[in-house]
Amino acid sequence: MIRFEDVDVAFGEHRAVSHLDLEIQEGEFFTLLGPSGCGKTTALRSLAGFVQPTGGRILIAGRDVTRVPSEKREVGMVFQNYALFPSMNVRENIAFGLTVNKRGQTDAKKVSKAEQTRRVNEIADRTGLALSQLDKNVSELSGGQQQRVAIARALVLTPRILLLDEPLSNLDAKLRVQLREQLKELQHEVGVTTVYVTHDQEEALTLSDRIAVLDAGHLQQVGTPEEIYDRSGTPFVCRFIGENNRLTPAVLISLGSGPGAPALDATAESYVRPEKLHLAAPDAAANSPASLDGSVVGRTYHGSHSVYTVAVEDTTLRVSVPAGASAHQWDAGDAVRVDVDPRWILQYPAV
């Protein structure tokens, strides 16, 4: 459905997107993920037609749209601040694109008043807006309701592609979780190809069919949430996504020294995530081919899990223990054993 071919976007001397090659399949929920300034919003805006690439091509369904005006690309856009019209009520905001079309925009479809009403009512229902809210001014709505209006306004035009630029970032944490679940359900129901921009890793992992991670304008990795998290392709992706422990050469040598221990490169840049480690008493039966002796430094409680800081060799490791996973709670100074499954150690050649 979407193809970026060696796309560059530069603003003066600054190259915001560099040699971007990317394919997005029809019907996918695809996320552009990365820190602030990585180029993800610029890439999205170039797909929307708001930013002109300085090199390469963008194709939609095989059609080169690199120089095609935004309104002729069949895309719907939801902005971070929603960009709703404060002087209009909810119904008028949703119907705006249909109204503009009716007034004779180039290549516009003629939409009757009855058809406008039908489509607005239908999309309002699908996006969770009550009919009783349609005659309210948008300023009377909560942030979550305004976000639904912005999505409804984009979808009422039946675009082939829906673009969302950090649409949940202005909402409180609990509402973000609720709305992202509803957004995923809506996308599956409508079936529209969706490109989503966020810096929030949890949003990306829970919403996406696939994720592209960008850094400083460069594409780092494309994959499913599981691939991005469990098999991070570069050190940057590993450090950016989730929590991790960096393993020192002394730790790697110790892990590789026992009988049946894994072959590990002690010179490599190496990481393991806290939840991939297992904490046990020193005399407990081993459940992994590699382990480290250590002592507890401290514990932090997170409700669903606890994170222990454990001193091993010349460093400390964070070990995540799910609530209820162990009947034992360790205190600072307790001797423990950290079991390590080498399958979860991510190693990258030293630069």
Rank of each mutant, 00 (worst) to 15 (best):
R210M: 08
D283Q: 15
P235R: 03
R318G: 00
D172M: 07
D200R: 13
T54C: 08
R148Y: 13
V297E: 14
D200S: 01
T267I: 01
D314I: 10
V65D: 05
P274S: 12
E74I: 00
L214M: 15
E202K: 10
R299G: 00
V237C: 05
N245A: 08
S320Q: 15
L157F: 05
A327S: 15
N244G: 01
D339I: 01
I345H: 11
E13V: 05
Q146A: 07
P225Y: 07
V75L: 13
H19T: 06
E28D: 14
G144I: 10
L44D: 06
D165K: 11
E92N: 08
A332C: 04
E275M: 04
K109P: 00
N245M: 03
L171T: 08
H199L: 06
R176V: 04
A335Y: 03
G260N: 12
L157W: 00
Q178N: 13
L247C: 03
L20M: 14
G97Q: 12
Q146V: 08
G27A: 12
Q201D: 06
D209N: 15
F240A: 02
L277I: 06
V192C: 11
W330L: 09
S87D: 03
S295N: 09
I161T: 07
V296E: 12
A154D: 07
A114S: 14
A130W: 00
E23A: 15
T234E: 11
S232R: 13
L171R: 11
V51D: 08
A285M: 09
N245F: 07
V177Y: 09
L98P: 02
R148M: 12
S70F: 01
L32G: 02
L279K: 13
H19A: 15
A325D: 13
A285H: 13
Q25V: 02
T127W: 03
E71S: 06
G34K: 08
R67Q: 14
E203S: 01
L255V: 11
G104K: 04
P342E: 14
V65P: 02
G62W: 07
G97K: 08
F240C: 02
T193L: 13
Q178L: 08
E243F: 06
L179C: 05
C38L: 02
N93K: 13
